[in-house]
């Protein structure tokens, strides 16, 4: 690993992976406790529509994609907040239509074809330094927002009705959370790919949830665990010449299964 660090692209890959792990640890914790995993998948896939739009109309990539994803995410937030029992179906529809829309727009865009694989699995080995700066800024902003609204987010996530009685602006907070989620997903997809985003959003928080005694512990634990998965995955992909995003996910998945087996057969966790 030390020798690998001689290469700029490996250093950037490592930094991008660690930043993605930290952002996903914080937001993923809120995704898991609020059961927003499916909705996150919806946003991530619908984002492809934004990519299509950006290429077809020759918009700058980030504003176009984030704008489209935010619009799709707000629609999903509205649906999941008002008609809860039908929300999964409608999220599924937006998921499929958003992605199909993006692919057709790319078909119609003359002379250019984005590689779908790089969208799915990202291109962590080719992350430019400018992306690292954007990720750092977003990471800091998201962490600050979550820190500021921590008690509100905690109350809403644990008991929405009680939060409303205490005067927490639950509706605005929910839309705000989905908005942060959309921005996170688009930015991190660009770096590590759609599949790795979903893995980093869900696997570390799920494993840590059983051992954490507070949301804050769960966020910190998930960020650390995600970073470990990223480090190990990158090292394995370097050693054995494997696709790095997929290797990180396989490391995470193995840890996920191990944690399930420990639950089933091993000693119980603390508390």
């Amino acid at each position: 690993m030390i020798e690998a660090m001689q290469f700029d692209f490996m250093r950037n890959a490592l930094a991008a992976g660690l930043l993605a792990s930290i952002i996903c640890g914080v937001i993923g914790t809120l995704v898991v406790v609020n059961r927003l995993v499916f909705l996150s998948g919806g946003i991530a896939h619908a984002a492809y529509g934004g990519i299509g739009l950006a290429f077809y109309f020759k918009w700058p990539y980030l504003p176009g994609t984030i704008g489209f994803s935010l619009a799709a995410a707000m629609l999903m937030a509205f649906v999941s907040h008002t008609v809860k029992h039908r929300s999964d179906t409608i999220v599924g529809v937006i998921w499929a239509v958003g992605m199909a829309f993006g692919i057709i727009l790319l078909d119609l865009t003359p002379g250019y074809n984005v590689d779908l694989m790089s969208y799915l699995f990202g291109s962590i080995l080719t992350v430019p330094s400018s992306d690292l700066i954007v990720m750092t800024v977003v990471g800091v902003v998201i962490t600050a927002l979550v820190f500021f609204y921590y008690p509100d987010l905690l109350a809403m996530s644990y008991d929405e009705e009680f939060a409303r009685i205490r005067g927490v602006p639950v509706k605005a907070l929910y839309f705000g959370l989905i908005g942060m989620l959309a921005v996170t997903i688009v930015l991190v997809i660009q770096v590590v790919g759609l599949i790795l985003v979903i893995a980093l959003l869900t696997i570390p928080p799920f494993i840590v949830e059983k051992y954490a005694k507070s949301l804050a512990q769960m966020m910190v634990g998930s960020s650390i665990l995600g970073s470990v998965f990223t480090l190990v995955g990158l090292w394995l992909s370097y050693q054995y010449d494997l696709t790095s995003g997929a290797t990180i996910i396989m490391v995470s998945g193995s840890a996920f299964v191990t944690s399930l087996l420990i639950d089933r057969f091993g000693f119980k966790g603390s508390s």
């Binding site: 406790v33 905690l154 644990y158 005694k213 507070s214 949301l215 512990q217």
Partner: peptide, 8 residues
């Protein structure tokens, strides 16, 4: 509700 929620 929410029995697995990490809260004391």
């Amino acid at each position: 509700m929410n029995q697995s929620f990490p809260i004391s």
